[in-house]
């Protein structure tokens, strides 16, 4: 599917410039809607009522809350290691790209994303 009529320059570079300006527009809009806040200076002696990590760590945070800590940590570390190296071990058949030709990976991936989302939302409201 390499499009011979689509060289890096100028076509792709122009697209990237367009994306950059759209991105800056989004960032400006977010900033004007709600500029980055700053709470009072850190005080090790006063614990705030609600202590939570950033949204992108919420899923892991919630997993550690509902399963025993050691199990959760070991499990997630193994999962991370698996994500790292699995292309060398699994799903290497180059004749199967379509979703239904590799259902375990396709639907497994979707399931993982859904679970991650559920745990993030759960972590947000718990």
């Amino acid at each position: 599917m390499a499009r011979k009529d689509h060289p890096f320059f100028p076509h792709h570079v122009l697209e990237q410039v367009l994306q950059l300006f759209l991105l800056l527009a989004v960032l400006f809009a977010l900033t004007l809607w709600r500029p980055a806040g700053l709470e009072s200076k850190a005080d090790p002696l006063t614990t705030p009522e609600h202590v939570k990590p950033e949204w992108y760590f919420l899923a892991e945070y919630q997993v550690l809350k509902v399963v025993p800590r050691t199990v959760g940590i070991v499990g997630m570390s193994l999962a991370a290691a698996l994500i790292f190296v699995f292309p060398f071990l699994l799903d290497r058949d180059k004749s199967r790209y379509r979703p239904l030709q590799r259902p375990a990976f396709y639907f497994g991936g979707i399931l993982f994303v859904i679970l991650y989302g559920i745990f993030t939302i759960w972590g947000h409201f718990s």
């Binding site: 700053l38 709470e39 009072s40 200076k41 850190a42 005080d43 090790p44 006063t46 614990t47 705030p48 202590v51 939570k52 990590p53 950033e54 760590f57 892991e60 945070y61 550690l64 800590r69 050691t70 940590i73 070991v74 570390s77």
Partner: peptide, 22 residues
Amino acid sequence: LPWDQRAYWATTVGTEMAHSVP
């Protein structure tokens, strides 16, 4: 880096998570 309450206590949670690695 901003060293406000939110920063300090979020990092506390993070380092506690690291602490529970066997």
